[in-house]
Nucleic acid binder design. Structure first.
Lengths: 242, 242
DNA sequence: TAGATTGTTAATCGATTAACAATC
DNA sequence: TAGATTGTTAATCGATTAACAATC
């Protein structure tokens, strides 16, 4: 029925959702693609094109109803339902995610964590218990889980991912710094924090270099200018009538 | 001098870096774009095109020297130098980042954290002290900082970002769920965790729907088939010679 | 030298932007 | 009805892939 939506479009949906939530907060009832475009620093064309992938949410001559559009995008993103999440790896990041209230606010409920460290097994984080990783299969047999989060060292990530897939998990949110080559019916969304940081680092260095280049260029111009003035001065002295 | 490198290329550099580190670990000396492409599930063309943005790292008839290429990409990403990082917001995520050893391993050193909560101020996380946010300007005047990480609630993020920019910070790693409209000479790299999760959720729902569609379609085919057989059977009965 | 493989140009593909007819 | 603004088609732009000459 519907065409496959490109990744670029999907990646923009949450941002639309956020801006619409803000507009709702400001009690704005309707907005045109043009006004929204100005706020978001994108083109109105892109907004209309993006939204039309999912059907006509707007109305000619009127624009988009903020509340309605917000709701529809929320439905697309699955915010309207309860998504059951588990976290494998109850280290610093795993625990931070379990504590992150923005997730539960959007319907992502952390139901359980798993770890191998006896120190953390048995702890309870905002209602979610930390189980021994040994009990993963047992838990999955008894409980429905939508999304499994991997926050463990990279060398153990693939093994756990395979165990999850064997239990029928269809969506993995991967924080481990490795590519999970699992079956293609299993969705993997990567969050590679150090890669994000490295990209920032790259851009920072590139900007510094560009800045230095600019400075050097300006310096050169100044030098050239001085030399030219001197030469002109010299010429003047040599002019006959001087 | 050099052309502007596209964001798509930059985002792939850390992944090349990771695969090259793995190859080094496996004591592989050289690799062709073709073999690397197979490992990474990308095209050889893309690898050669990407790397050539930064100059000829390879050699015709030989391929790429793993160790050399790893080093060069590391330099591009600033892994070879010490990057001084501070973290504003010493909550769960901020503390998790400060504890994350993969960063220091790549030359990103968390030097200090800042918070307004008296409960956490004064704590020490792997050698980095948590200061009162009041002392941010004081700290920045006395210490060189390359990257500022924002892990605080969205409503306070922009204000802090502006304070950072006023002190000359040129790179912000933003975990706050908002767009920071700072000066265009300031680099912002966003990590929007809930948006990443929402994208996964979207893809999960889309896959489920596609699956249902497939099932329904298969069901319909079965029905059609049965109906056709029945009709054929009926016809047969009515055939004269029966 | 012959074989291999890069660096680079050309062709293709996909995503973004512009334009405008449809319609509220 | 006239004005506004969408939905959608066409044009442009950029990124990816293919091809191949250069060269180790």
């Amino acid at each position: 029925m519907k065409e496959k939506i490109s990744k670029a479009v999907i990646s923009r949906l949450p941002r639309y959702y956020r801006y619409l939530a803000d507009l709702k907060e400001e009690n704005v009832d309707r907005i045109s693609s043009n006004d929204l475009a100005k706020r978001m620093h994108v083109t109105a064309s892109q907004i209309r094109q993006d939204l039309n992938n999912f059907g006509g949410f707007g109305q000619q001559g009127y624009g988009y109803n903020v509340s309605y559009l917000h709701g529809e995008i929320g439905k697309l993103l699955g915010i309207d339902r309860q998504n059951k999440v588990i976290i494998i790896g109850a280290g610093h990041i795993g625990q931070a995610l379990a504590n992150y209230q923005n997730f539960s606010r959007r319907g992502f409920l952390v139901k359980a964590l798993f770890d191998i460290d006896p120190e953390v097994i048995g702890r309870n984080i905002r209602g979610a218990e930390v189980y021994s990783l040994d009990r993963l299969e047992e838990y999955l047999a008894e409980n429905e889980v939508d999304i499994a989060t991997l926050t463990l060292p990279r060398d153990r990530a693939l093994e756990v991912a395979n165990r999850l897939c064997a239990c029928g998990i269809k969506a993995i949110w991967n924080f481990a710094h490795t590519d999970l080559n699992v079956g293609e019916d299993v969705l993997v969304e990567n969050v590679h924090l150090s890669e994000s940081l490295m990209q920032l680092s790259y851009r920072m260095l590139a900007a510094r270099e560009a800045e230095e280049e600019r400075m050097k260029h300006a310096e050169q111009l100044k030098l050239d200018h001085r030399r030219r003035s001197e030469k002109a001065g010299g010429l003047r002295k040599e002019l006959p009538g001087a």
